[in-house]
Design a protein around this nucleic acid. Structure first.
Lengths: 135, 135
DNA sequence: TTTGCTGCAAACCTTTTGCACCTAT
DNA sequence: ATAGGTGCAAAAGGTTTGCAGCAAA
C-alpha cells in the first residue's frame, strides 16, 4: 500500500512550483538550500515514480534527465531553452503521418519524441549583454 | 594538423559497415571480436569527432549515445527499433511551423529532435515466437 | 624531429541500489 | 506491530581525461 510522507509532498510541491524542466540534482540543491532535509535518492525515486505514473514529463537536456509537472497525464512536445530550461509546450500540426510512415516500413510505434531547443528571450538578452562591453 | 591513422580508418569503415545506429561500446566489442586492437577511448574520440563534424548522426537510445554514418552532412529523423537499433530514415511532412511556433514565443531555434521508436518487423516476429510455446 | 593520436587507467557524473532505520497506518 | 519510505554510502554504467609512449608527417 502506498504511504503518504512528508518527502513526497515536498517533491511534488517543489515540482509544482517550477514552470520549467528541472533535474533531480537541481531540485535537491534548491530544497537543501531552503532548509529541507531530503536525500537525493528520494528525489530520484519520487521523480521517477511521478514520471512512470504520467504525472511528470521528462526530457533529456545537457546529459541530464529533466522533469516537469504534467497534470493531465498527456503526451507533450516542448520548446526548451537550452540555457535555463524555460519551457513552452507546443502543439505539432499533425502526427497522423507518423503511424503511416512507420507502417510503410513494417514498424510498430511505441513512442516518439519531438523537442525543439533554442534560447528563450531572457537568455538571448543576457547573451547580448555579456557579448557587448560592460557599461 | 589532423593526422591520418589506422584507427581512424577502422572506426570509419566499421561505421560505414553498419546500416543502423550503434553505440561506442558495441562498436568496440565488434572490432575487438574480429581481432582489431583499438581502445574504447579512441572509439569515443573518433565517434564524437565524426558527430561534431556532421559526418555522423547521433541519438540517445536505452541510456546510450548511438551513432550512425551520415555522409550528406544533413539533419535527419529516424524510425528506430528499440530492441535491435535497426533504423529507417523518415521525412517529416513539413518543418516550417517549427520556426514560426518558436518565434511566437520569442525563442530562437538552434536544434530539434524527432525520433520515432518502435519494433522493426524482425523483432516483432521474434517477440511473437518467444511468446508462444516452443514447437 | 615534431606533435597529434592512441591506449590504459583513473576520474567523472548522473542515476540506481542495498540495507538499516524510521514512521505512517 | 507491520511494512513501505527514507537516507546514506557504495555501486553501477557510460563517457571523458591525464599522461606516457607511439607513429605519422
Amino acid at each position: 500500500m502506498v504511504r503518504h510522507t512528508k518527502q513526497k509532498d515536498t517533491v511534488l510541491q517543489a515540482l509544482r512550483g517550477c514552470d520549467d524542466f528541472v533535474s533531480a540534482q537541481e531540485l535537491h540543491r534548491r530544497l537543501t538550500e531552503q532548509g529541507e532535509r531530503i536525500g537525493l535518492a528520494t528525489i530520484y525515486r519520487q521523480l521517477n515514480t511521478l514520471a512512470t505514473n504520467g504525472n511528470a514529463d521528462t526530457i533529456r537536456l545537457n546529459e541530464q534527465q529533466m522533469f516537469r509537472i504534467c497534470d493531465d497525464n498527456g503526451h507533450h512536445h516542448h520548446l526548451v531553452c537550452e540555457l535555463c530550461g524555460k519551457t513552452v509546450e507546443i502543439e505539432p500540426p499533425d502526427e497522423l503521418w507518423l503511424r503511416s510512415v512507420a507502417q510503410e516500413h513494417g514498424y510498430t510505434v511505441s513512442s516518439h519524441t519531438l523537442e525543439v531547443f533554442g534560447l528563450c528571450p531572457d537568455c538571448q538578452q543576457n547573451q547580448r549583454e555579456s557579448a557587448s562591453p560592460a557599461q
